Simulated scan of single mutants.
Amino acid sequence: MRSRFAAGALAVAVTALLAGATPALAQPQAPATATGTAVQQAMDRILANGAVGVQVRTTRDGRTATATAGSSVLGTPWAVPDDGRFRIGSVTKMFIATVLLQLVEEERVELDAPVSRYLPGLLPDGDTITVRMLLQHTSGLYNYTDALPLDDGEFLAIRFRPYTPHELVDLSTSRPLDFAPGTDWAYSNTNYIVLGMLIEKVTGRSWDTEVAARITTPLGMLATSAPRGSVFIPAPHARGYHPVAGVPVDTTELDPSWGGAAGEMISTTADLDLFLTALIDGRLLRSAQLAELTSAKPDTDGYGLGAFARNTPCGLTAWGHSGGIPGYTTLAFTTLDGSRRMEASVTNGLGPDSEDAVYGIVDAAICG
């Protein structure tokens, strides 16, 4: 949640287990296509960088394939489920942005209106910070996760601590702005906590209720949910690990409320593919709103209004988001014509130099 890699990030860790089920022995993955070979090599690379397990779903020109590597439980030969649930971290932001842009299309929210119009008194600079700035991370709001003990063993102290959105915003507003609103770009999870509160104020319902009503239920995304205070991930799932003093610690169960609208949802690769497909084909956003979602400028580090561009080695541009939370790293990207899509979950204890390896999975899936 700090860099653009963490531009989907609430932090590290991973692996997997079919909770409540008898785990199957891992079987060798035999790729049937050139794309499968490239993805397999990318998965091998991420395992070499410290991941315990990985599952990937790819779609190219109407053909879908799934692949897994590693193990679902550290130190065992148990296979990673290719339909397992996982915490998606900041990929949650794409759902929040979609709801906001629907509200814009319904003329219930204005992108360039000040936040104070909808949430008076919440932000000291609410008169100069607009909804668009929140969506695009140009508000200057201090990133509240930088004030949380998320590194190494410090995270264990807050692992089961519940947080409210107001607490998280207060962590941010107790610090000065990083820059004057609209003058620069910096990834800040605070922006999406505020957007979750804005959705509730405008609709009278919580952000996760709106996500369910507008996106996941109509699309049949039955495995996608917000935890609502639960520390568990529904089965089947891989177990997630967080490195503590260089040793992976199982952090599968945790209270993700500190992620909130910025990153607490749970999903699967199949469900995320349903979401990406509906996003691109117009079922969720009209063309004007989709254009806003993908309206990255040179000074926004490739970030639009809730998604960012990945320029792949083969010249194709994929749009989507990455996400991280202790135990899990998520990737969800698609070309704008929808012909090439990919979703992946990595269960890891990834090292600081793993960003290239993680995004290598995106490149392999999109390019082949």
Rank of each mutant, 00 (worst) to 15 (best):
M133H: 05
F155D: 02
I233K: 02
W207I: 11
N191I: 06
A48E: 11
S267L: 07
N191K: 04
R159E: 12
T37G: 14
L123P: 07
R205H: 09
P176R: 08
F333R: 05
A51C: 05
Y359T: 10
V247K: 12
L74N: 12
V56H: 01
V131L: 04
L101T: 04
A186H: 04
N49G: 15
D299N: 15
A332P: 04
R2V: 08
F275T: 09
S206R: 14
A270S: 09
S267K: 01
V39A: 03
I280P: 03
H137S: 06
I158V: 08
F333K: 02
M342P: 12
G368T: 00
G196Y: 05
G70C: 01
T334D: 06
G20A: 04
R117I: 02
T145F: 01
V131E: 02
R161C: 12
A223D: 07
K93A: 10
G229C: 06
R286K: 15
L254V: 11
G70E: 00
D363A: 01
E107I: 07
S287V: 15
D255Y: 09
E167R: 04
T209K: 04
R132G: 06
P28T: 09
P352L: 10
L279Y: 03
K93I: 10
A245T: 13
T252C: 09
G8R: 03
V247D: 08
D337G: 03
M342N: 05
A288E: 14
A226I: 14
S116D: 15
L316G: 09
G8E: 09
D178C: 10
Q289D: 13
I158E: 00
G327L: 04
A97P: 10
I280W: 07
V52W: 05
E292V: 14
R205I: 04
V14N: 14
F155A: 01
N143F: 03
A26F: 05
